[in-house]
Design a protein around this nucleic acid. Structure first.
Lengths: 199, 199
DNA sequence: CCTACCGATCGGTAGG
DNA sequence: CCTACCGATCGGTAGG
């Protein structure tokens, strides 16, 4: 039998990171103190350091967890030869949105607070982000050549779509919320229909 | 003749706020110290307080300057009876984008750092933001009733559009930049075409 | 996991 | 506009 306590809610380190993600999302990385975090975890600030090395390390774990999930999902769609360009874009957006809905706090911290990463993590993260965007742009460019997609600037389309997706943050805080699956459908209509050629 | 020095680059207070906007945008409000700001302005930290009352006041000035500009522009479009719903949405997006391009630093600080406002400014800002979004949603709902716009969820469309616009931040930092007017055109195609009914 | 504490830095003030 | 300085709080460590 495995250890009981560690398996129920994850390790203490995982709990710390999860609470930190919520705080970093609400108040920002810089404005969250280790004492804030300790209070949320239910220990003294000094005790946190038995599980993590530094405040910076927490941010690193959050950002790379999210980045790796998105990269992994992108690889899957890239490998799917049955989809055309619009289909690929739709699948990537859907997975990206799903990820943000599933890991809300972490996803938004990675999206908004990555600037506070220190080197070499900062450069590493930016490179991963750039690669992701470039693959999306390639898919759009393929779609433009196939006449599936209007002749727009692919890089611009990518940053618009990725920023639009981050609206889930605001959506989640808003009072009048539609169901998650409808949000997803609305987003894809608005973002993908505008790309299509309509004769 | 007017005073020479004060008119060239604005008053000292305006210079401080402008430098602060750039720092808040780059590093975030919480991570920017008054000593950082003082160094950028070219004085000692204590000297800043002859022109401003507090760090919080700087953020207030930035956020409300931006909010008031956007509200003013929205009023103009609302009053224009010659435009249909799609035309109004297009005009508001265009003005919003123009504003962000003109006052880059301030616009992005207002967009990303407003959470650090203190009461009563925080509530005031949120109310102004909400009113702006509700007016946009009303225009979209009118368009849906007229069959100009697809039957999507209007509130969702609004937050998607407003978040998409904030991509100008990333766009401006990117290496491969298209011209500003093309950015604007691309954004409006992607965001507005998806709304239209196409039979 | 805690108590006790470190040096550094924060926003801001006094006084000139 | 400066020097000098305040109390508070920061991330983090020592030692048990």
């Amino acid at each position: 039998m495995p250890p009981i306590k560690a398996k129920r809610n994850g390790t203490k380190k995982e709990i710390i990171i999860s609470k930190a993600a919520k705080l970093f999302r609400d108040k920002g990385f810089a404005a969250t103190s280790m004492r804030d975090l300790a209070e949320n975890v239910g220990v003294e600030a000094a005790s946190l350091y038995n599980h993590i090395q530094s405040k910076a390390e927490i941010l690193q774990e959050i950002c790379f967890k999210v980045a790796n999930l998105l990269t992994t999902h992108l690889e899957k769609v890239k490998a799917d030869n049955q989809l055309n360009a619009i289909g690929k874009i739709q699948a990537i957006l859907k997975m990206h949105i799903d990820q943000m809905l599933k890991n809300r706090d972490e996803a938004h911290v990675a999206d908004r607070e990555w600037r506070h990463l220190t080197e070499p993590y900062l450069s590493n993260f930016k490179a991963q982000r750039k690669a992701y965007r470039q693959w999306l742009a390639h898919i759009i460019e393929d779609g433009i050549q196939n006449k599936e997609i209007k002749p727009i600037d692919a890089s611009t389309a990518v940053i618009i779509m990725l920023h639009a997706i981050s609206c889930i943050e605001s959506w989640h805080r808003s009072e009048q919320k539609i169901p998650e699956d409808q949000l997803e459908k609305n987003m894809i209509i608005i973002l993908v229909e505008g790309l299509k050629y309509n004769d």
